[in-house]
Design a protein around this nucleic acid. Structure first.
Lengths: 345, 345
DNA sequence: CTGAAAGCGCTTACAG
DNA sequence: CTGAAAGCGCTTACAG
């Protein structure tokens, strides 16, 4: 490790940072009142041209930059929104975070990021830690109970992603299309009996996908079972292998790609052939699904768009502007090599 | 897409959110002065037991929660730190972000996340957007010039990660150990001539790795060349294949894993055998390097520890406390199957 | 141990 | 068009 410090800090002498100029400094320099400075800077064009120019010149000269804290205290707006995820390192969230970050940055907002680590308790703590200093919250795959979420949304603008709660704004991509494509794909390959590898109990999205999958499978005359709950991780997928083999199904649809990848690797280690003995489909099409051999067939979710739209939706609620029409967010099957004709089919 | 709204918001009638209680409300209820309330809540044990208890009871009854903005205006501290990355979706950063998030959260700080999109210009904008409302900044793989960084650090606590600038605190894992292991590994396999696939011109880390690699290769009597600059992405790696083949080297060490993966996939598509015709080593050991066939040999960086230590270092600077001894952050080679005996060796 | 007062740096009615 | 004043919700010397 290399750690360098300025001479000052290594002497533990405080680096005296020049105190930032305020509108009072500008007022003095431009010979106007502070209120006039504030107006000049906030609503250009409402003042005498000369005064405004003088004020701007003074501000530039002093290197003035607005203190957002002081403004926030008065306006009650911090120009900041909070994004709460269950697990920062799950690759599913990368695109979502990026989409949200770009959407807010383009409106001069700032993103505050927090993680709940798959725990309702920690999520509650996290929300209360950041809640008071953001203008609104995006809760992704929230592990909180419906009641908690309803209360939260009554005192702060709130948008849910991949979670639905009655009366609360939420964005969930239409999962049916991708699931139908997945089932049609499996059926056409000759599969008759499939399993859904479910995620954690607290995951609304896992139940949601299961319910849609169940109905669609039944209507196609496919046998369908549920295996789990499992941790939504590589390990969770790997750990389910025994139950998958014991179940006798020829195909598995996992709650997410991490589980699908885990199951794939565990299968290969066991010499259980993919896709000959078991076809595997993941969910979300995260980074890495295309890297394995066989590459993982997956139902792609529009994560980047989801993050972006959630942010825009939230900003609209905060600013009380009309939301623009929503683009449809749907899922679609990406066929790769982890699905094939079943040996027993 | 499903978008639900409360009745109020869909009528565009403002949802009247109850205004939050302040210390004045508590003061009235507990029949003390606001200053006493502030003390009771901030420095427990300094007041008369009875008063303190009465105040706490009143606060609980009202559901009081401190307004961090108001406090910040007075103290000048927001309990927030900013993390600026070049590219949020690069998997290298996942663990780093998580490490930093956990470290700051454990100190009741909050993480603000921003992205510079590989552009010095955008990075400057980003820093100025979030700079005034954070207590300090972590700049990861900053694309700013040395002078900009020095100025920045003179008016705000700042810690650099994977970048060194004289006089500015910075954390860079020791890259030499991993590089030595990589070279010894290649040499023992019989390689005599290797290439470094460099990253973007503005990447300090790319130059740093190259310099260390150069010296170590020369001292081992290996021929070494540099190919690039390249975009630090899958595409960047893939695009370099032609130059790699033309160069005649038998092994490549890429600036990062994304490039190594891109090169691997392009090679396979071209029928250029890995590792028989070209051995490939990546850098950082990101998620996904173990998934390919052959799996990618990589120099692992301790990204999570880096993020955590950078955050702790920054908090120490902010609070002017003594930094605890730093643990060594070193790199180490993870041998997988993308390296092997060269056919021409 | 507790209170009155000033101040953090803005914004915004209210006057003129 | 511009200024004086109050206020956002805290904290912290300064008194007593």
């Amino acid at each position: 490790v290399s750690v360098d410090h300025t001479d000052e800090s290594s002497n533990t002498v405080q680096v005296t940072r020049k105190t930032a100029p305020t509108i009072y400094d500008i007022a003095r320099l431009a010979e106007v009142s502070p209120s006039t400075v504030s107006r000049a800077l906030n609503k250009p064009g409402r003042l005498n041209q000369g005064t405004e120019r003088r004020i701007r010149a003074a501000a530039d000269e002093l290197g003035y930059r607005l203190n957002p804290i002081a403004r926030a205290l008065h306006t009650g707006k911090t120009q900041t929104i909070g994004l709460v995820l269950s697990d920062i390192t799950n690759p599913v969230y990368f695109d979502l975070v990026r989409g949200a970050e770009r959407a807010v940055a383009s409106e001069q907002y700032t993103l505050v990021l927090a993680e709940s680590q798959e725990s309702a308790e920690l999520e509650r703590e996290t929300v209360s830690r950041i809640g008071r200093s953001v203008d609104g919250l995006i809760l992704v795959a929230s592990r909180l109970g419906d009641q908690d979420i309803i209360e939260l949304s009554s005192d702060k603008p709130l948008v849910l992603v991949n979670r639905e709660v009655p009366g609360v704004a939420s964005l969930v991509p239409d999962v049916a299309q991708g699931i139908r494509e997945a089932l049609d794909h499996l059926k056409s390959l000759g599969h008759r009996s499939i399993a859904f590898l479910r995620g954690p109990t607290a995951s609304w999205m896992s139940s949601h996908r299961w319910e849609v999958l169940f109905d669609e499978a039944v209507s196609r005359g496919l046998h369908v079972i549920e295996i789990g709950p499992n941790s939504p991780t590589l390990e969770g997928g790997a750990d389910s292998l025994r139950r998958v083999r014991a179940s006798g199904v020829t195909a598995v649809i996992a709650f997410n790609d991490l589980m699908a990848l885990g199951l794939l690797m565990a299968s290969q280690q066991d010499g259980f052939a993919v896709p000959e003995e078991i076809s595997i489909i993941g969910f979300d099409d995260i980074f890495g699904t295309a890297f394995t051999t066989p590459a993982v067939t997956s139902v792609r979710s529009p994560l980047g768009d989801l993050g972006e739209d959630a942010a825009r939706e939230l900003l609209a609620v905060i600013d009380q502007t009309e939301r623009t029409a929503h683009r449809p967010l749907h899922t679609t099957l990406i066929e790769r090599q982890s699905t094939g004709i079943p040996r027993t089919g």
